[in-house]
Design a protein around this nucleic acid. Structure first.
Lengths: 277, 277
DNA sequence: ACCTGAACACCGTTCAAGT
DNA sequence: ACCTGAACACCGTTCAAGT
C-alpha cells in the first residue's frame, strides 16, 4: 500500500541532475535510507536506469549530491538573518535559557553585545544543521559515510569553513584555529546526529505518541541497563529526560566556546605547538 | 591472486558466534567494508550461509557484534595501566607538549599531580579509541551506522559510561554531567574518526609512500580549494600539515576539558538548567 | 542442536540500441 | 546529446533436508 506514484506530471520538464537529486532527497525523506533504489528512482522519474546513469556516475555520487544539497541549504538558511529559535515550535521555553546562562559562555572582548556576535553565528550554524538532521533522518549517516569515503569531499569543507570564519572572528590566535574549529565541528555533528538518531529510534518504537512519551521510552532504555555496570548512565538518564534537546545541544556548544575562549586568554604564542608557524 | 584461504586448519573447532565475529573482523580489516560478505565468510569458515544464520540473526547484527568487540577491546586496554603514548612510534616529540601546556588544561583541585588523574584517564580512553580506529579503518563508519540504527545499542553506553565516570571524578556538578560527557564523547568519536578517514584516504591515494608525503597529499587537497570560497581552510591547511595527528587530537581534548572545568568553577547550582534536580 | 547448500528476491550497474 | 530497457553479476536471506 501507500507509495502513491506522483508521476501524474506527464513527462514535463526533461531529466536533469538536479531533478534526480531532488527526487533522491524526497525518496530518502519518505522511504528512508533503504528506500532509495534505482528502481524506485526510475519509477518516480518515469525513466530507465540508463537515463539516470547518464547524469550521475553511481549511487555513491548520488548520495553525496543529496547530502551536499541538504547541508548547503542548511548553511545558507542562517546566513541572512539568524533565526535560532524560529523552529522551536513545541519548546518555546528554550528561549529564556538560550541566552547568557550557563557559565558565562565566552563573550569575547569587543563584539559582545552585538546582535550577531561570532558566538551567535556559530549557534545559528549549529542549529541549522541540527534542524536539517531532524528533517532528514538519513543525513547523519550519509554525512558519516561521505566523511569516511572522502574527508575532503564538498560537505566537510563547507561546514568547516563556515565555523572556521567565526572562530577567527572570535579572536582565537592562529595557532589554535584548527583545534578550535575541529572541536566545534565534531561536537555539532556528533550531538546533532545523536539527537536525530534518538528521535528516529523513538519514533520507530512508538510511531505516533507524544514527544514527552517517547522521550520516556528513550531514557527508559538507559534506565534499564544494569546499575552495577552502568552507574553513570543510570544517573544521567533521569536528567536527560527532563531536558529539552535544543537546550542540551546549546549547552554543549557553549561549553566548547568557553574552552576556546579560555584557550586564547591564556597564551597568544601558540600553546599546544611550540614549534608551529 | 592474494586471498590465500587460510582454511588449512581442517575443520578443527566447531563454529561459534565468537569465531564468526572474529572472522568478520579479520575480513573487515583485510578486505575493507565491502569485503565482508556472507560468501567470503562462508569460504573462510568453510561452511554454508545457513550455519552462520544459526548463530547470528543478520548482517547488521554481525556488524554490530564486530564493532562491539573492537570497541570493548579498546576500552579494556587502557584500564589496568594507562599507556597514553606507548604507540607513538614516529612522533616521540609529542611527549613534552602533551603535558600542562595549552591553556592550563583543567587540572582539578585535588587529584592534580596524581599519576592517574581523571584527565589522564580520559586521555587514555580517547587514545584507545583513536588507535582502534587507526587499526580498523571500518570502525568509524560502523560506529556511526550503529549509532543511527540504535543509539542505545551496546557500544555507545560503553563509551559514555567510561567517559562519564571520569567526568564525575572531575568534580563536575551533577547538573552538567550529561553536557560534559556528551561534549567529550562527540569530540573524541568525531576527531578520531576524521583522523582515521584521513589516513585511509591518503593511503588510497598514495598506497605506499611515507607518512610525511601522504600528509602532504592530504592537506594539498585543501590547499587546492578556491581561496575566495575557502579562505579559512586554506589558512589552516599549512598548519595541519605541520602538526602531529595525536598532538592535535590531544589539544582538542584539553580544550573540551578546559571548558568543562570553567563550567563547574562558575556556578554549582546548575547553570543551563535552572529547573533540574 | 547444529549444519548443508540450492534457491529466491532484490539490487547496482552495463550496454547495445534507439532518437 | 540524451534516453530505453533487457541483461548481468552479486548480494543477503530462506528453508527443506540432513546429522
Amino acid at each position: 500500500m501507500a507509495t502513491r506514484t506522483r508521476r501524474s506530471q506527464r513527462r514535463t520538464e526533461a531529466l536533469s541532475r538536479d531533478r534526480i537529486v531532488e527526487a533522491a532527497v524526497e525518496l530518502l525523506d519518505t522511504a528512508g535510507e533503504g528506500g532509495l533504489t534505482f528502481r524506485a528512482l526510475t519509477e518516480r522519474l518515469a525513466t530507465g536506469p540508463g537515463a539516470i546513469y547518464w547524469h550521475v556516475a553511481n549511487k555513491d555520487e548520488l548520495l553525496d549530491a543529496a547530502t551536499d544539497a541538504v547541508v548547503a541549504a542548511a548553511l545558507a538558511a542562517d546566513s541572512p538573518r539568524a533565526e535560532p529559535s524560529a523552529r522551536v515550535e513545541s519548546s518555546a521555553r528554550a528561549e529564556p535559557s538560550t541566552r547568557g546562562e550557563s557559565a558565562e559562555p565566552a563573550e569575547s572582548a569587543e563584539s559582545a553585545k552585538s546582535p550577531d556576535s561570532p558566538q551567535d553565528k556559530i549557534r545559528a550554524i549549529a542549529f541549522g544543521l541540527f534542524d536539517a538532521m531532524a528533517d532528514h533522518p538519513w543525513l547523519p549517516t550519509q554525512l558519516a559515510l561521505q566523511l569516511s569515503r572522502s574527508p575532503w569531499g564538498s560537505v566537510t569543507p563547507q561546514i568547516f569553513e563556515n565555523i572556521g570564519r567565526q572562530v577567527r572572528a572570535l579572536g582565537v590566535p592562529e595557532g589554535h584555529w584548527f583545534t578550535a574549529a575541529s572541536a566545534l565541528v565534531h561536537y555539532i555533528l556528533g550531538a546533532a546526529g545523536q539527537n536525530a538518531a534518538n528521535n528516529a529510534s523513538a519514533r520507530a518504537l512508538a510511531p505516533d505518541v507524544d514527544r514527552a512519551e517517547f522521550l520516556d521510552a528513550a531514557s527508559q532504555a538507559w534506565e534499564d541497563l544494569d546499575p552495577d555496570d552502568y552507574p553513570f548512565i543510570r544517573a544521567v538518564a533521569a536528567q536527560v529526560r527532563e531536558h529539552d534537546d535544543r537546550e542540551q545541544f546549546l549547552a554543549g556548544i557553549d561549553l566548547v566556546l568557553t574552552g576556546i575562549t579560555a584557550l586564547h586568554l591564556s597564551g597568544e604564542q601558540g600553546g599546544t605547538t611550540p614549534s608551529a608557524t
